[in-house]
Amino acid sequence: MRITSGTWLILGLLALWEASARLGWVDSPNWPALSQVLAALAADMATGELPARICGSLWRMGAGLAAGGLAGVLTGLAFALIPLTARLFGVVVELLRPIPVPAVIPPLVLFLGLDDPMKITVVALTVFFPVLTNTLQGVQAVEPDSIAMGRTFGIGPLRRAGFIILPAALPAILAGFRVALALALVVTVVAEMIAGEQGIGSYLVLMQFAGRAPEMYGVIVLLAALGYALNRGFVALERRLIAWWYAAGREAA
């Protein structure tokens, strides 16, 4: 890997972390040195407990992402293509959108319980809005010419939506998913912190109560790495899915 200035900055900050704990600049047991944190993280990975919890969290996140994403894309398409739906539901969506998801967790607990259905719904709700907004804008930005051309060739409205509009709007939709992905991980952990024994979130609470700061920060470091890896993975996927868009972009530039 090529070492860029950004990498040096991260290494510098990590070194500062280590030094601040070792040299007592921050004198608290709740500020363990990076080396202790990594040792604790390695120990918890080795027992197999943490990998199992990560898998559980990723599964919940993935399920919420899929459900919320699909709903977002379908609603976005409907809003853009069938004006009546936008008139009917647009206001409702705009009213619900600014509500912070953690604020609606208590009613969700009431209706959906404390298990996976509640946690996945929380993630799906978080994912829904950025995907919806981006889908809507992506569809509205599709060149009218290509839609008109489809119509000229006698392609029906459903096939037009699926084979002309959706691919053309895909770059915007994927941008929405990228925003949603980062939020999804955050919200999954928050939902797991509320109740239950599964996932990274509950592990964070447990370690906080047990006063085990190195383990707690170990999970936080892990979450940072996980979020970074997910984003990198998504970008790679994006480049394959809409290679034509990047190619066109490069030509234009």
Binding site: P106, V109, L110, G113, L114, M193, I194, A195, G196, E197, S202, V205, L206, Q208, F209
Partner: peptide, 18 residues
């Protein structure tokens, strides 16, 4: 057992049948 960080979800969860 379901661990909660505080009493915040325990008693309401009991009322809600969780």
């Amino acid at each position: 057992t379901s661990t909660t960080a505080g009493g915040a979800t325990g008693l309401p969860g009991l009322v809600a049948g969780q």
